[in-house]
Computed example of a mutant assay.
Amino acid sequence: MSLTYSPISTDWPCQVKTPGNRDWERSAAKWLRELVPSRYASYPLLIRQPVLLARHAQIQLQQEIRVVRTAMHSARAELPALGMPESVIEHTIKLYAAELTQLNHIARGVRVVTQALVENQHARQGH
C-alpha cells in the first residue's frame, strides 16, 4: 500500500528511508532502537510494533532533555563545590548546551517518524 504522507523536512532523519521506499519501516525501527536503552530495543513487542518503539523513544528523549537541562542549570551552583575550576564549568555548560541542541533535533526526528509510522499503520488498517 502506498503512503501519501510526505515527510521530507529538515527534521526527517537521514538514517531513515522515506515512506514509499522499500523497507522504510525497517530503517525507522533500526534507528529508533538505537535511541532507547538496549534492554528495550530487544523486547519482541517493541520490535514488532514500531509505533510503540517510537513512543518509547519519544518518552526516553523527553527524559534525557530534562536531565541535560537540570545538569546545565545547576552546573554553576554545584560544580564549584566539587572542586571544578571556572574554565571546566564553562566548558561543561557549553557541552550541555550542544547536547541539548542535538537531543531536540533527534526528538523532532522521532516525532516526524512517529507520525509517518502511525499514518502508515492507519493506511494498512483501512482507516
Rank of each mutant, 00 (worst) to 15 (best):
S2M: 09
L3V: 10
L3Q: 04
L3G: 05
L3W: 05
T4C: 05
S6T: 12
S6I: 12
P7M: 06
I8T: 12
S9C: 06
S9T: 12
T10W: 02
D11F: 02
W12G: 01
W12E: 02
W12C: 01
Q15S: 10
V16K: 03
V16G: 08
V16M: 05
T18A: 14
T18R: 15
N21K: 15
N21T: 09
D23R: 13
E25M: 12
E25A: 02
R26L: 15
R26K: 15
S27K: 07
A29M: 03
A29L: 09
A29E: 08
K30T: 14
K30L: 11
W31G: 04
E34M: 02
L35H: 08
V36S: 09
S38E: 11
Y40R: 10
A41N: 11
A41L: 09
Y43G: 00
L45Q: 11
I47M: 05
R48S: 07
P50S: 05
V51M: 06
V51Q: 11
L52P: 00
A54W: 11
A57C: 03
I59E: 10
L61I: 05
L61P: 04
Q63F: 01
E64L: 15
E64P: 00
E64R: 14
I65Y: 01
R66K: 14
V68I: 11
V68P: 05
R69H: 06
R69Q: 10
T70A: 13
A71D: 11
M72H: 10
S74H: 07
S74F: 00
S74L: 12
A77L: 09
E78P: 03
P80S: 06
P80A: 01
L82Q: 11
G83Y: 02
M84Y: 12
P85G: 05
I89H: 01
E90A: 09
H91R: 12
H91W: 10
T92H: 13
I93R: 14
Y96D: 03
Y96M: 14
A97S: 13
A98E: 13
E99G: 11
T101E: 15
T101F: 12
Q102K: 07
H105N: 04
A107W: 03
G109Y: 00
R111F: 01
V112A: 04
V118E: 14
Q121E: 14
H122V: 03
R124F: 04
Q125P: 00
H127R: 15
